[in-house]
Design a protein around this nucleic acid. Structure first.
Lengths: 329, 329
DNA sequence: CGAGATATTTACATCGTTGTAATCGTCATG
DNA sequence: CATGACGATTACAACGATGTAAATATCTCG
C-alpha cells in the first residue's frame, strides 16, 4: 500500500486519520491508492498498537427472544451512527458466560461491552476489571459503580397491574413472578404488582405468583394451564414477558377461555408479535430506541474517556402500557 | 506474562500451542503463571502473525426475523463445538452490506463468512476474492463455485401446495411469490407451487401471486386483506415465511374469516411462534440444525485447507411439511 | 541571503504472537 | 573422552498501524 502510493506507511496512516499536516497533493495520491487497491485498515494491527478496535460487544441471553433481537437492532443502528461496529454475543443467561462477557474474554477485541445479565451476582461486578467499559441493561445485580440502563420495573409492573385493576380484575396472576430472592427483574416486577394491589386494597394471594423455568412460550402456556385448574382461577394474567403471554393466550384458547371475555392477559416488552396475535396483546412497552441510545452513549463515553474511578451512572428510561385487545383495548 | 513465568515469550507460545518439545517442568510453570495472571492469548497479535483468529462470521438479513435468530443459535452451537466463536452480522438484505460481508470488510477479524444473501447478484460472486472462505445459505445467486447450503425450495413449495390441494383447496394464493425475475427464493418457491398446480391439473391464476416488500408480519397481513377483497377470494394462502403467515392469520381474523374453516394458511420456516399461534400454523420446516452443521462444516473445511480453486459444494438438506391447525391438522 | 520558524514527511520502535533457525544442554555411543 | 544426536529453549524477525521524535522541505522576515 505505502510503496504503491510512493510514501511511507506513516503517511498513509496520517491520511487515514486526518492528520492536519499533510499536503493536499500527498493526500490525493494516497486516497487514490486506497481506492485503487481497495485498501482497508487492518484492525488487528491497529488494535495491537492502540488497544482500540472501534467495535463494541452486545451480550444478551438469547437472540431468539424477540425483545433481545429487537433491542440488538436498535443498538446496531445506534452504534452505526457513531461509526462503531457491534459484535453480537449470546450468553444463554449462564453466569459463566456472562462473566466471560464482563471480562471481555470471548470478545477481547472489543472496546467495551453492553451486557444484559440474568444470573450475574453482585460480587461478580465488585471484582470485575474496571478497565473494560461495561454498561448493564435491564437487570442490575448491584447498585453502584457500573453504568446501567433500564426501565423502572417496579413502576412498570405497578402500572400494568393498575390497568387490570381499573378494569375490575381482582384475581391477577403473575406468570414468571418471584416473591422472594434477589432483586432480579422478576422480583422487582412482582414487587410493583404487589404495590398496585395494596394501593387498591386487593388482598395478595401468593398462589397466584407462578415462577417459571425460562421466559419462553412453553413456560407461559404451562403456567396458564396450571392456573386455570385452580379452584378459583385468576381473572387476569400478568406475564412478565410477551413470549410467555403469547404462550398463555394459546393455552387459554385450548382451555376454552376467552380473552378478554373471561380474563385479561398482559405482557411485557412490546415485541412485534403482540400486534398480530389473536387477540392482540396488551403489553408494557419499554422505550427500546432510547435504551439503545443511552446504552451506546454511556459506553462510548467510557471508551473515549477512560476513567476507572468514574462513578456508575444509572439511566432510567420511560415505559408505557400499550392497551390492546387482550385487556379490552 | 513471559517474565512472570521466567521464560521467553516463545516458550509461552509453545506451551499454549501444545508444542511437544517442552519439558514437563516448564509446562507446569507456564500453566501456573497463566492461571495466576488470568492470561489470555491476544487475538490481535495472533491474527497479525498468522492471519487467523478462530472466529467466523454469520451474516443474515435481519436478526429479528425469527428464522434467522433461530438459525444463528444453531450455528453458534455448532461453531462452539468446533472451538470457534461466531460474529453475528446484520445486512438488512442490502446488496452493499452483503457485498461488504462477502469481502470481509466489516468483519476482517474472521476466518470465513456464512452469508445468507437477499440481493447479491451473480456477478458479485464471480468477482469476489476467493481467498476469504464463504458459504452461502438459502438463496444462491448463481450456480457454481461457491459453497452453498439450503433446502430444495422448489420441492418444498410443491409439497406444501400438494398438501393444500389434497385437502381440496383449489384457489391457493402465494404471499411473497414471484412469477418472473431472478431465481431467488421467492421465484423458486413460486415455481414449485406452479408445478404442484400443474400436477393436479389446477389452472394457474397470476392474480393469486402477491409480491411483497419484505417478508414481515405487516406485509402478510396487508396481502391477505387485499386477497380477501378479490371477486373470488382464495381458499388457501401459501405464505413464503411464517411471519407473513402469522400476519395473514391476524388479517383474516379481522376480516371475520375462519382458519381453517373458510380457508387454509401455510407458512415457511417452522419458527417457534407457529406452535403457539391461534390457530397453530402449518409450515414447511427446514432442517435448521442440519443447515447449521453443514454450513459450519463446509466453512471450516475451507478455513483449515485453503484452496481457492476447489469447486463449490452444494448441500441440500431435508424439509418436511408440519401440518397443524391452520390447515386442518 | 541567512536564520529561524513552520510545514511535511519519515525513521524507528512497539504492541503480542509465532515460524524459522540458532543456541545450549544432555546423553548415548564408539 | 570426543562426537554426534536430539531435546529444550530462545533470538530474531515480521505481521500492520501509529506515537514520538527526528529529518527534510518550505517559508518568512530582517
Amino acid at each position: 500500500m505505502a510503496e504503491y502510493a510512493g510514501v511511507s506507511p506513516k503517511t498513509v496512516s496520517n491520511v487515514i486519520n486526518d492528520y492536519e499536516h499533510v499536503s493536499e497533493r500527498t493526500r490525493t495520491v494516497v486516497r487514490e491508492a486506497i481506492d485503487a487497491l481497495g485498501y482497508r485498515v487492518n484492525i488487528a494491527g491497529r488494535q495491537l498498537r492502540q488497544g482500540r478496535t472501534g467495535m463494541i460487544t452486545l451480550a444478551v441471553p438469547e437472540l431468539d427472544v424477540a425483545y433481545f433481537s429487537e433491542l440488538a437492532k436498535h443498538v446496531m443502528a445506534e452504534a452505526d451512527r457513531a461509526g462503531r461496529t457491534v459484535l453480537l454475543h449470546q450468553t444463554g443467561g449462564e453466569r459463566g458466560r456472562e462473566l466471560a462477557a464482563l471480562h471481555g474474554f470471548d470478545t477481547q477485541f472489543s472496546d467495551g461491552v453492553i451486557l444484559s445479565p440474568l444470573s450475574l451476582l453482585p460480587r461478580d461486578l465488585a471484582t470485575r476489571d474496571r478497565r473494560l467499559p461495561v454498561v448493564l441493561l435491564g437487570e442490575r445485580p448491584a447498585e453502584g459503580d457500573t453504568d446501567h440502563v433500564g426501565i423502572d420495573n417496579v413502576a412498570a409492573a405497578r402500572d400494568a397491574t393498575a390497568h387490570l385493576l381499573a378494569r375490575g380484575r381482582r384475581r391477577i396472576a403473575v406468570i414468571g413472578g418471584a416473591v422472594r430472592g434477589r432483586q432480579g427483574t422478576d422480583r422487582l416486577r412482582t414487587d410493583g404488582y404487589r404495590q398496585a394491589l395494596r394501593d387498591a386494597r386487593v388482598p395478595f394471594d401468593p398462589r397466584l405468583v407462578v415462577p417459571v423455568e425460562a421466559f419462553h412460550w412453553r413456560d407461559g402456556a404451562r403456567a396458564a394451564s396450571r392456573l386455570m385448574d385452580l379452584g378459583t382461577p385468576p381473572d387476569a394474567l400478568l406475564c412478565l414477558n410477551d413470549h410467555m403471554a403469547l404462550g398463555a393466550l394459546r393455552a387459554l384458547h385450548e382451555a376454552g377461555r376467552s380473552v378478554p371475555g373471561d380474563l385479561d392477559v398482559v405482557g411485557f416488552d412490546d415485541i412485534e408479535a403482540t400486534r398480530f396475535s389473536v387477540p392482540s396483546l396488551t403489553t408494557v412497552a419499554p422505550d427500546k430506541p432510547r435504551i439503545a441510545r443511552e446504552a451506546v452513549a454511556l459506553l462510548l463515553h467510557r471508551v473515549d474517556a477512560p476513567d476507572a474511578t468514574a462513578p456508575g451512572r444509572d439511566e432510567v428510561v420511560g415505559h408505557r402500557v400499550v392497551v390492546r385487545e387482550s385487556s379490552g383495548g
